[in-house]
Simulated assay, not measured.
Amino acid sequence: MANDDSDLLMISGLKHFQFCRRRWALVHIEQLWEENVLTLEGHYMHERVHDDSFTEARGAVLLSRGMPVRSQRLKITGVCDMVELYKDEDGVPIQGRSGRWRLYPVEYKLGQPDVQGADALQLCAQAMCLEEMFVTDIPEAALYYGKIKRRQRIMLTDELRQKVKDSVAEMHQLMIKGYTPKAKMGKACKNCSLEEICQPRLTKQVSASEYNRRAFHEEDGQ
């Protein structure tokens, strides 16, 4: 019997969620999205990395790009930018390859290291999916930042893993309720691609879809 993916949340949503819970809800619950320069540049970078049919061998290392991952325990799914596979006697078997391999996920980001920890949260969720899929342990992974052109090692600690679990659980609860959190004005709002849709300066809270519906009817009545 095929797995039902209807209740799986996108791993990429963890970054939105950490950045702003309302932003996550606007994208993933209300299905609203607006592009800006930053998001377009980010998409371009990921397009250069992703190729789900491509595995490159560099000596004893395999580079698997655009690997789909999922976790039935956490009910999340997504795509790893890159999974590096190193020959290791303590690793796991990989279909179509001889020997055993150790998995090392790498996530590519456009800008500079993230002080809020959203990138590490997303990366840890990917690793937790890989651990479940391959029945293995992944203690470490990496983030590559285009702005500084180097990697940042991320230790996948128990604390980080628990934060992933807690965040995903809260996301599922909001999704089930269909609830969009209230806006909280902050410095990051000016760079958010959803600022016009979100309307964080509104004191009276309504859903973005309801706000847009009212605005449409007001214009239609003129």
Rank of each mutant, 00 (worst) to 15 (best):
L103D: 02
M82H: 11
V83I: 11
V83K: 01
M82D: 12
V83C: 04
V92R: 08
Q95P: 00
Y86I: 00
Y86S: 10
K87F: 03
L85N: 03
D90E: 15
G78E: 07
G99K: 09
L103V: 03
T77D: 08
G99I: 12
S98V: 01
D81P: 12
M82R: 14
I76P: 00
G99H: 10
P105Q: 07
G91M: 14
V92W: 05
T77W: 12
P105N: 07
S98Y: 06
S98P: 01
G91S: 15
L103G: 02
G78L: 07
V83A: 02
E84C: 06
V79E: 13
V106L: 03
V106H: 02
D81F: 13
G78F: 09
I94C: 01
G99W: 07
P93M: 06
P105Y: 11
W101S: 04
V92N: 06
P93W: 05
G96P: 04
R102H: 13
Y104R: 11
G91L: 12
P105S: 06
G78P: 06
V92E: 06
Y104W: 14
R97D: 09
P93T: 12
L103F: 05
C80E: 02
G96S: 13
E84G: 05
R97N: 11
L85P: 00
V79I: 14
S98K: 13
L103P: 03
M82K: 10
T77F: 10
K87Y: 07
L85A: 07
C80D: 04
G96Y: 13
D81N: 12
